[in-house]
């Protein structure tokens, strides 16, 4: 680990004020300390924001405001989250371990970096870690990498479960930074790799996430499901956050679908949603929508399994949610 300076921020604005090139904000540390030990992250200055008073969950009208420093455990255990945003509670509980969830913050979870084996190994090339060095995953180990929205430069996936649910919930990410405060709607926080895979998100240098605000939950039933070879404590092969609202006439009046571990971003399946809304809530319609969504995929030899997996998952999940 490279030497660095450590400072504790007294307030969000103090954190932003301390920011200079080479600075990173430290939340729960569950990913950043991990990456620093690997040599992947080499900050000169760590500004600890984990103890800022951003750890409150509070209703704002029919919305719910979740502070950026709320620990994952507390998010999933919150009575309002459990009852109104079951999809989010389930996604959080499906991630990592009890210990990691106790440490990890909401903002840190959103800003997790890919678990691509090449990204995590500084002795191998990686365009995300060292722009221009190449992407060996495309010819090599891409078994759990992206099938949607990837580029020739990068096929990494975003590893978060929580972010998938937030994308489906149309959550808003509140940010403060050198350029002032702004609100970034999910799933727009994360970006596709394009030819700048080193940029995971649209955040600018110095930006600090202060909160995530959840709009009123979508009507209908919702859930989160994660597929993994180990029954717990494993990253997803594919995951899904979905909600479905079907009128008494059997017509879909609302539908949200987001997929995890298929892209550089939590993937909002907008094509499928558009096809489903206003149509019948039948297995055939679910299948057609799933296939339309996955038509855009560009799988590689060793991750092509994600297409039938995602298709099955969309269909099975919607069937489960249908009345």
């Amino acid at each position: 680990m490279k030497r660095f300076e450590y400072a504790r921020a007294g307030s969000p604005s103090d954190a932003v004020r301390r920011f200079r090139p080479g600075t990173m904000y430290l939340g729960g540390g569950t990913n950043l300390v991990d990456l620093m030990r690997l040599g992947v992250a080499e900050p000169d200055l760590l500004v600890d924001v984990s103890r800022l008073p951003l750890d409150v969950i509070e209703p704002v009208g029919d919305r719910l405001r979740v502070g950026a420093a709320v620990r994952n455990t507390d998010l999933a255990a919150d009575p309002l989250v459990r009852t109104r945003y079951a999809m989010l509670a389930r996604a959080v509980l499906d991630g990592a371990s009890g210990q990691v969830r106790n440490m990890a913050t909401v903002a840190g979870n959103l800003l997790q970096r890919t678990r691509c084996a090449y990204f995590q190994d500084v002795s191998r090339p990686c365009n995300k870690r060292r722009p221009g060095s190449g992407c060996p995953a495309i010819e090599g180990d891409h078994g759990n990498l992206a099938v949607l929205g990837a580029s020739d430069a990068c096929v990494a996936t975003h590893p978060s479960d929580m972010a998938v649910a937030l994308a489906a919930l149309d959550a808003e990410v509140h940010v403060t930074g050198p350029g002032g405060d702004r609100i970034i709607p999910m799933p727009g926080l994360h970006r596709l790799p394009g030819d700048e895979p080193e940029r995971d998100t649209v955040l600018e240098p110095g930006d600090l996430i202060t909160a995530v605000e959840l709009p009123a939950p979508p009507p209908g039933a919702s859930t989160y499901r994660k597929v993994r070879e180990r029954a717990s404590f494993a990253f997803a092969l594919v995951s899904i956050a979905a909600s479905l609202d079907v009128g008494s006439d059997g017509v879909v009046s609302g539908c949200r679908i987001a997929l995890g571990s298929v892209a550089h971003v939590p993937w909002r399946a907008e094509r499928a949603e558009r096809l489903l809304i206003g149509g019948p809530a039948t297995g055939a319609a679910f299948l057609e929508a799933a296939e339309a969504e996955l038509d855009q995929a560009r799988p590689l030899p060793r991750n092509a399994y994600k297409l039938p997996l995602a298709r099955n998952l969309i269909v099975a999940t919607l069937e489960e949610l249908a009345p």
């Binding site: 450590y6 430290l26 729960g28 540390g29 569950t30 300390v33 991990d34 760590l46 600890d48 984990s50 455990t73 009890g98 210990q99 990691v100 106790n102 440490m103």
Partner: peptide, 19 residues
């Protein structure tokens, strides 16, 4: 490496001592 930090279980390897 699990220990309790302020009563909650945590991975001591992921916690910087200064933090």
């Amino acid at each position: 490496c699990t220990v309790l930090i302020d009563g909650r279980r945590a991975n001591a390897c992921l916690a910087l001592a200064v933090a």
